[in-house]
Amino acid sequence: MFVEERHQLIISILEKEGKIKVKDLSSRFRLTEDAIRKDLALLEKKKLLKRVYGGAVKIRDDFSFLALEDRKKILPKEKQKVAKKAFDKIKENSVIFLDISTINIEVAKMIIEAKLKILVITNMIEIFLQFLEKDTDIEFIFIGGKLDKKNKEGFVGSYSIEQIKNFQYDLAFLGATGINEEENIIFTYFLEDAICKKEIIRNSKEKYILIESKKLNIDGRVKFATFDEIDGIITEK
């Protein structure tokens, strides 16, 4: 096997598994571990992976903040798939929190269409508008507070947190800007949003992160949860 072929296979394995070990590659390609380390060093120079102790991991992307209207246009089919999986977890007569998330906009649309007998609570303006514009008998509460002046997507801050604390949620769906599986970190972009998310998690019986799978390779600015604090991560895959 040519060196370039081996390098392509290494990258292919890394894409599928997220991380690779020198020992496993050595066995697979029947090469010494030193030879594999040289391969990984070359691939790291080409910025195709990042070496770590005992192997390598994918190079992670940094989250770039986009306006709401722009984010809604990204991977719409994937967002729909995630929203449907989340929607299927909702039971009648339950209390649901929909966090600031473009996927939760799709969840809200499905709830309205199905005319579920539930109480929906949110701090996201776009979700509020969905319920305001539709003729529905679904019980709905909007959390107010400090408007994020930069992107104007929803209400955050201490007053919002005080309102969030007033309820016990059966189910909460939260957005995230990225997830680092290796380091057990779930990210958002703004500090005040992170504090609100923490309070939502604290007051929810079940809580799920809704993301497109590409965000499993993206880092954000602010950590708001670890895996042991949530019940699951829902992606289109």
Rank of each mutant, 00 (worst) to 15 (best):
N203Q: 05
I103S: 03
R37F: 01
A108N: 08
K152A: 14
G54M: 09
A67N: 14
L147E: 10
K16Q: 14
L129R: 15
G220Q: 07
N217Q: 08
S160W: 04
L98G: 06
D24F: 05
E17Q: 14
K81F: 04
K21Y: 12
F167K: 01
L75S: 08
L147K: 11
L14D: 14
K150A: 12
I125Q: 00
K58T: 14
E153D: 09
K38F: 01
I179K: 04
D70N: 08
I233D: 12
R202H: 10
L75R: 07
I96G: 01
E113S: 11
G157R: 01
L191Y: 12
K146Q: 11
R6Y: 09
E199D: 11
K207Q: 03
F173G: 01
E212P: 05
I200Y: 01
D170T: 02
T102P: 00
A67P: 07
N104W: 08
E192R: 08
F142V: 06
R30Y: 07
T235P: 13
I121R: 05
K205M: 05
F65W: 06
A172M: 12
E5R: 04
F2G: 06
L68V: 15
I209R: 00
L119Q: 12
K207T: 15
I218G: 10
A108E: 07
S94D: 08
K109Y: 00
E92W: 02
E106W: 00
V22H: 02
K91S: 14
D170S: 03
S94L: 02
K38N: 11
I103N: 05
A67R: 13
V120P: 02
T122R: 07
K38E: 13
I233A: 07
D34N: 10
V222Y: 10
S26I: 14
K215R: 10
I141L: 08
V82C: 06
N151S: 14
K149E: 15
L66N: 13
I36Y: 06
S204V: 06
V95K: 13
R60Q: 14
D34Q: 13
I164P: 00
D137S: 11
L191M: 05
L48G: 01
N217E: 12
L9W: 03
K91M: 10
K38R: 15
F173H: 02
E4K: 08
I90D: 09
K72S: 12
S204R: 04
E133M: 04
L171M: 07
E78N: 12
N151H: 13
A172H: 04
F224D: 07
I103A: 06
L9H: 11
L40M: 09
M124Y: 02
D99H: 00
K165W: 01
E113L: 07
I211C: 11
K79T: 12
V120R: 04
D137Y: 06
I112E: 07
I230Y: 04
F87A: 00
S64L: 10
G178K: 07
I143D: 09
L129Q: 09
E69P: 06
F173I: 09
G144P: 03
R37A: 03
K16Y: 00
I141H: 13
G55A: 08
